[in-house]
């Protein structure tokens, strides 16, 4: 019985972690599509979020084969950093943080957005959403492991 239960939690944790990896990979390729194919300019805040996102694509598969729940520590810090940067970015675009506080090159203002889906989903918002979901999933991985 116990063995089956452990196997099930591993399965669940593995699946959740796999989902995080899918999210990270899609986000990475999408961001590269925007900048390298569509040639949209990348502001410095976007770069900080990329720094947090891109390593996950490589780190997570190592924790999937074989499954290693400890990765939530290493991936978690990246997700937290990305999430905070994305939050700052969203507040900046929304005008809640004044423009003068932004750490941007003059030519590529971070407060300018290029994409708008459904009227609210611009790129920093998508980034914040993705990092939030990834954070939640990582938390569930950790929980399923400790229970």
């Amino acid at each position: 019985m116990n063995e089956i239960a452990t196997k099930n939690t591993v399965q669940k944790g593995w699946m959740l972690l796999f989902l995080v990896w899918i999210l990270a990979t899609i986000s990475t390729l999408a961001s590269l599509f925007f900048s390298e194919i569509m040639k949209l300019p990348v502001c410095s805040l976007c770069w900080y979020q990329r720094i947090a996102m891109y390593p996950l694509v490589l780190i997570l598969p190592i924790a999937l084969f074989p499954f290693d729940a400890k990765v939530t520590r290493y991936a978690g810090i990246l997700v937290l950093f990305g999430w905070l940067t994305a939050l700052f970015h969203v507040l900046l675009v929304a005008g809640i943080i004044p423009k003068s506080a932004q750490p941007c090159v003059q030519d590529i203002p971070c407060s300018e957005t290029h994409l708008n889906i459904f009227g609210f989903l611009n790129m920093p918002m998508m980034s914040l959403l993705t990092f939030s979901i990834m954070g939640l999933l990582l938390f569930l991985v950790k929980k399923s492991e400790s229970s």
Binding site: L29, F33, I37
Partner: peptide, 25 residues
């Protein structure tokens, strides 16, 4: 099998990316 799943999904994502690039171009 987990490995087949992983490889299958990876391939699907990469193919989708290549398709998106060629459509955009």
């Amino acid at each position: 099998n987990k490995k087949t799943l992983f490889i299958g999904v990876s391939l699907a994502i990469v193919l989708a990316f290549i398709a998106a690039v060629s459509i955009f171009k």
